[in-house]
Amino acid sequence: DAEELIELVERALKEGREIILLGVRITSEEAGKWFIEWIRRFL
């Protein structure tokens, strides 16, 4: 579910982890915020 995915992304970014989803590397909080917004819009 989308909320679970958002929580995972937020937690990983807070822990300083690198996330790779759909071939996109997300390493900064700014990118994470963009990704979370995208999830909310399309899922």
Rank of each mutant, 00 (worst) to 15 (best):
E3M: 11
R11M: 06
R40I: 11
I20M: 04
V9L: 08
A12W: 11
E15V: 08
L43R: 02
T27V: 13
A2Q: 08
I26W: 06
E10N: 12
G16R: 06
E4N: 11
E10T: 13
R41F: 13
G32Y: 12
E29C: 15
E37M: 12
R17F: 09
G32K: 10
L13P: 01
F35M: 06
W38G: 00
V24I: 14
A31T: 12
A12K: 02
E18G: 08
E7V: 11
R40Q: 05
K33P: 04
E4H: 14
K14H: 07
K33L: 09
E7T: 12
A2V: 14
E4A: 13
R11H: 07
L5E: 00
E29F: 12
E7W: 12
R25H: 10
R11T: 09
L5Q: 01
K14S: 09
G16L: 15
E7P: 03
R41A: 09
E4F: 15
L21Q: 01
I36S: 02
D1R: 15
E15P: 04
A12Q: 03
L8M: 10
E3F: 14
L22V: 05
E4D: 09
L13A: 03
K33S: 05
G16H: 08
G16Y: 10
F35P: 00
L22K: 02
E3Y: 14
A2I: 15
A31W: 14
G32R: 10
E15F: 09
R17Y: 12
I39Y: 06
I39T: 00
I6W: 14
K33F: 07
G16K: 08
E3K: 11
G16M: 14
K14I: 08
R17T: 07
A12F: 06
E29Q: 13
D1T: 14
V9P: 01
I36T: 03
S28C: 12
E37A: 12
R25Q: 06
D1K: 14
L22P: 00
L5D: 02
E3A: 12
D1W: 15
L22W: 14
V9S: 00
I19C: 15
E7Q: 11
V9D: 01
L43Y: 12
L8I: 09
W34Y: 06
I36F: 06
E29A: 13
R25Y: 09
E3H: 14
L5P: 01
F35Q: 01
R40K: 10
W38I: 04
W38N: 01
L21Y: 04
W38Y: 05
L8K: 07
I19M: 04
L43F: 14
R25T: 08
I6T: 04
E30H: 08
I26P: 03
L5N: 00
V9G: 01
V9K: 00
E18M: 10
F42E: 01
I19H: 02
S28G: 12
A12V: 08
E30D: 09
A2L: 15
I39H: 00
E29W: 14
D1G: 13
E3R: 15
W34R: 14
I39A: 01
K14R: 12
I36Y: 07
R17N: 05
L8G: 02
S28M: 05
V24F: 13
L5G: 01
L21V: 13
E30P: 08
F35G: 00
I20Q: 03
A31Y: 09
E10R: 14
R25P: 03
V24Q: 03
E10G: 04
G16T: 05
W34Q: 09
F42Q: 04
A2E: 07
V24R: 02
R17V: 11
E30N: 08
G23A: 10
L43A: 05
V9C: 14
E15T: 07
R40A: 06
A2N: 06
A31R: 09
L13R: 03
L13W: 06
R11D: 04
A12C: 15
T27N: 14
G23L: 14
E4R: 15
I19Y: 04
I19N: 01
G23I: 12
I26S: 02
R41I: 11
A2W: 15
E10K: 13
G16P: 04
L13H: 02
D1A: 13
A12G: 04
R41S: 10
I36Q: 03
L8E: 05
E15M: 10
W38D: 00
R17W: 11
R25K: 08
V24K: 02
W34I: 08
E29V: 11
E30K: 10
F42Y: 10
E15G: 04
S28E: 04
I20F: 05
L8H: 04
W38S: 00
A12E: 03
E7K: 14
F35V: 09
E18H: 12
V24D: 00
K14Y: 05
A12Y: 05
K33Y: 09
I26F: 06
I19E: 00
L8F: 11
K33C: 13
K14E: 08
G32H: 06
E7F: 11
E4P: 09
L5W: 10
E10V: 14
L22A: 04
E18Y: 11
G16F: 13
L8V: 04
E15D: 10
L21W: 05
L43T: 04
R25V: 09
E3G: 10
E3L: 13
D1L: 15
E15N: 08
L5A: 02
D1H: 14
K33V: 08
A2P: 09
D1V: 14
L43D: 00
R25N: 06
G23Q: 09
F42S: 03
S28L: 10
A12D: 01
I26V: 05
A31M: 14
E29M: 13
I26T: 07
W38Q: 02
L22D: 00
L43V: 07
E18V: 13
E30C: 15
A2K: 07
I20R: 03
F35R: 02
E15Q: 07
E10W: 15
V9Q: 00
R25L: 12
L21I: 12
R11S: 05
E15K: 07
G23Y: 13
E4M: 14
I26C: 15
E30F: 11
F35N: 00
E3W: 15
A2G: 06
E29I: 13
